[in-house]
Design a protein around this nucleic acid. Sequence first.
DNA 1: GGCTCCTCCTTGAACTTTAAACAAATGGTC
DNA 2: GACCATTTGTTTAAAGTTCAAGGAGGAGCC
Lengths: 180, 180
Amino acid sequence: MERMKAPASAPTPGSAQEPQEPRWLTDEEQHVWRSFMEGVTLLDDHLDRQLQRDAGMPHVYYGLLVKLAEAPRRRLRMTELAMLAKITRSRLSHAIARLEKNGWVRREDCPDDKRGQFAVLTDEGYDVLRQTAPGHVEAVRQAVFDRLTPQQQKSLGEIMRIVAEGLQPAEAGADLPWLR
Amino acid sequence: MERMKAPASAPTPGSAQEPQEPRWLTDEEQHVWRSFMEGVTLLDDHLDRQLQRDAGMPHVYYGLLVKLAEAPRRRLRMTELAMLAKITRSRLSHAIARLEKNGWVRREDCPDDKRGQFAVLTDEGYDVLRQTAPGHVEAVRQAVFDRLTPQQQKSLGEIMRIVAEGLQPAEAGADLPWLR
DNA sequence: GGCTCCTCCTTGAACTTTAAACAAATGGTC
DNA sequence: GACCATTTGTTTAAAGTTCAAGGAGGAGCC
């Protein structure tokens, strides 16, 4: 994974060749990375199961409903929603199609731009959210916040914000500053 | 998401009813949680794409090869591997089937237990790992370690280990203590 | 208008994951 | 041995995700 046996000698650094000596992870870094991946995997699974059971949808879909619920008039342009949720438009298209079938979201044409579509949270969708939100918060609390000190919570936020910013496509939302 | 408008009054705490007043997230907690989810989503996507492009497999599959590479005789029982990778046996079955098609893993019967199967990393599989590991470490470094102070790295490890432990099924690996 | 390029969103196929059901082997227990 | 519960791993179908391709509208330019 992050470590494999390293070759005996390394090419001169700074040369034109790309394949420098790989910057393998140290043991400490490796432990961090494994804890991270394990924690994320288990947490993701846990919340997906919780929501699938209690709300009949995966975590990502739940997140979409939340974004819509928070938006003015409970609606967002598809691209906007995709960016907020950090997923591709393609994935969003499929997701909204499913949520539409459930009656939790409906599509509306955009008057200004005939290419555009709004995803609109229906009253039924809002109800689902209201009924399932308490259980979900509780799950998140039990899995994460209840186990961490305030200082750890703060650190986690800072750390993951840094990571997220580093991966944010440079221009993402540059023209939609109010989304950030 | 973690917050919806709260009812005006709460049922008496400690009563027999479950639906207490939900423990909504504070604003700070909510920011932490969103940073976390966004970071994880972006990171997961990023590494998946990196490995799909450079190694022809998703991140999880890569992780399976790594576990096998580290195991004695480069082999593990299916259940053992599933537990190490924190995935279900079903998922593992499918994954190994695919990796077997690639020629990177092969199955072997377990002599002791006729139900049992070993997943064995082939030489081809090992080569793929050797060739793609440098690129992957580099991606992990650039996305995570290069951006964090040593103190933050340490915190991240501690925090995610706590989260992981909380979600580990109580008995998981209890009878396989050498796996922990 | 005509041209080109870009953006918005959808689609279909291939692939991965999940959930539930299942066969076979094991390990008691009687 | 017969019985029953458990463990092991697979299978099926449905659901979700990804990738590449594409239609349609907008925006700038001649």
